[in-house]
Design a binder for these strands. Structure first.
Lengths: 168, 168
DNA sequence: GCTAACCTTCACGTAAACGTCAAGGTTGTG
DNA sequence: CACAACCTTGACGTTTACGTGAAGGTTAGC
């Protein structure tokens, strides 16, 4: 028995399964964080080795990178991330059910459900983006103001620049 | 001694000073959080009453609202918020020095310094915004896809919609 | 000048998100 | 098959960002 392959039915041939440390190196997370994410239900490893080693596939890596991005870049809590990913998962599940359903009414219901979920995601994200945009605008306004001052200094080293047009 | 007025020199006449609970009501923060922000150096109350009550002015309120926004909307840690506000403060200080300096070279140096700081703020914020935008685009793409499906179902309740043009 | 309602400063408790050993099993390479 | 390098599951420690009293001063109204 060569048995480098795990004992699961997730046989995606070309897909090499990685051990937790390799995943950590690949994603920039720590093994502890990855285990913790499993603990709080953010992702289950694709498989376990015979000796119970966690084994991760490509989609796991993708998911972990998503989690990390949501955490670092967007500053969401793990609970919020869980919500967002759960919505994703529900979307996938509905997709499956959708595919196997031939009743147009149910199909429409499933899609509408999915759409609502995506809509919620978008609203959550856009609210955050809007706030950020406001802050960015404020900062840019400050920068613009400073640039004005600089231009003034370049244009003519007037010892009393506050006299020409209301600097404040 | 009528002494409703504090014992500080920050005499901005029309500015009513608020006690911590009033500030809390006004900002949506808790008194504890406000004290904590002071503890970690995010803001000092404008004054103290005779009996050492914390008293806050309008600019304190503004600052607290900013902190809350950065915390809730942008998801920054208090440490990061401290950095951003510190940059702000440095900007103000430089502004003061700028006003009292009459050496054009130094003036330019001060403004350039300030500009660098603002630039850093903008970069930090825009990086975050960019990530968010990516996520929003992805979500919108999913929504668009779902809408397509819905349109297909509305247009004609075809029992085999997967036959018309590669649904996946 | 009494008292309710607020404030103060400790000080300990808590939830989230991990870090860090400890004790022991697994893997694969020589 | 020995053994270093990795993995497992606890379990306790740590930091951040507060919550929650406790013990005692302060303020404002009557």
């Amino acid at each position: 028995m060569p048995a480098t392959t795990p004992t699961t039915t997730t046989s995606t041939p070309g897909t090499a399964l990685l051990k937790i440390q390799e995943v950590a190196a690949e994603t920039g997370l720590t093994p502890r964080s990855i285990r913790y994410y499993q603990e709080v239900g953010l992702l289950e490893p694709a498989a376990r080795s015979e000796g119970a080693y966690r084994l991760y596939d490509a989609s796991d890596l993708e998911r972990l990178r998503t989690i990390k991005e949501l955490r670092d870049e967007a500053g969401f809590s793990l609970a919020q991330i869980g919500q967002l990913l759960e919505d994703e998962a529900a979307r996938e599940r509905n997709r499956e059910r959708f595919r196997s359903s031939h009743d147009p009414t149910e199909r429409r219901a499933l899609i509408n459900d999915a759409r609502d979920r995506v809509e919620r995601q978008i609203e959550t994200l856009e609210a955050k983006a809007a706030r950020l945009a406001e802050m960015i605008d404020a900062a840019k306004e400050r920068r613009r103001h400073l640039d004005e001052h600089l231009a003034e200094l370049e244009g003519g080293p007037d010892p009393h620049p506050e006299r020409r047009g209301h600097v404040r």
